[in-house]
Amino acid sequence: MERKYRVVHYLNQFFGRIGGEDKAGTGPLGREGAVGPGLLFQEFFGHDAEVVGTVICGDNYFNEHPQEAKDKLLEFIKGYGPDILLAGPAFNAGRYGIACGAICSHVSDQLGITSVTGMFSENAGVELYRKSAYIIETKASLTGMKDASGKMVTLAMKLARGERLISPEEEGYIPKGVRMNYSADKKGAARAVDMLLKKLKGEPFTTEYCMPVFDRVEVLPPIDNLSEITLALITSGGIVPRGNPDHIEASSAKRYGKYDIQGVDQLRPDEYETAHGGYDPTYANEDPHRVLPLDVIREMEQEGVIDRLYPYYYATVGNGTSVANAKEFAQKIVKDLIRDGVQAVIISST
């Protein structure tokens, strides 16, 4: 027989039967067994799982001391040795929603166990935590308690058992903003013609990918004292020392390299090459300056057009590399550049 899963439930002061708004400052505490809505959860779990403990914290306390609240609650939760954490549901209560999202996300992260909460779609906690926690979509008020509890329990059991989820709509949770592959019932070509005919007839259809919204970086004013600046070179064209010592991937790069060019005036083809898998490497390997113009910049340095070239250059591969990875690289690189007083950067792409 399958063992019984252990569940801990998080509640605020109101649902935890401590008191109303006057008790919202109550700090974290633990209770054995199920309290309030936890009794309903227990009914839904039946013999599959047992609500072994309940942790409670006042809404104000949590939002005013988030780190302390999370740390303390984590200690209580750990003590029960749970497989599952349920939080709320918080419906449209904003402070409660934020607390539920925060504790679910923290516990999943720290203990690696399943956690599920429930909120109304416009709860402030949704935007903050939908990417890091499973949030069942609920009605705005308490009238949705039974429906929400049933869905939270079903989803929690599926996750705990490692079952494959069908879809956010089917399971009732708010999409986490993560793309996942699945096999559709028809080929893409047939789906395309179906969608086009629906669009032409004015019938409802659902696009399979909503257009992304891009960051737009404001252009800075030109530099007027070029001869006094330190300039750095960065490339997403994959120019690396031969042998690609940092193993930068040919596509969807997960890393970048930082290479010392003190005293290097020429990128010789026997010393440098491209690691990029998205373009024909013939010409870049023949003359790496075609992608990283070190030769010209060195001349400009000697002529005094710029004061000096930064002693390192950075390289990655911009071939299908995710925006999230690119952003992370940039944040790290910028730290070096600002610390070392670099005022301008030339980024060569391919």
Partner: peptide
């Protein structure tokens, strides 16, 4: 190309006209 974790933007360009995408 949404990244290994599926959490990144999938395309390098976009237009609001592209409201029907497979």
């Amino acid at each position: 190309f949404a990244g290994i974790d599926g959490g990144s933007q999938s395309l390098a360009d976009s237009t609001p006209h592209a409201n029907a995408v497979i």
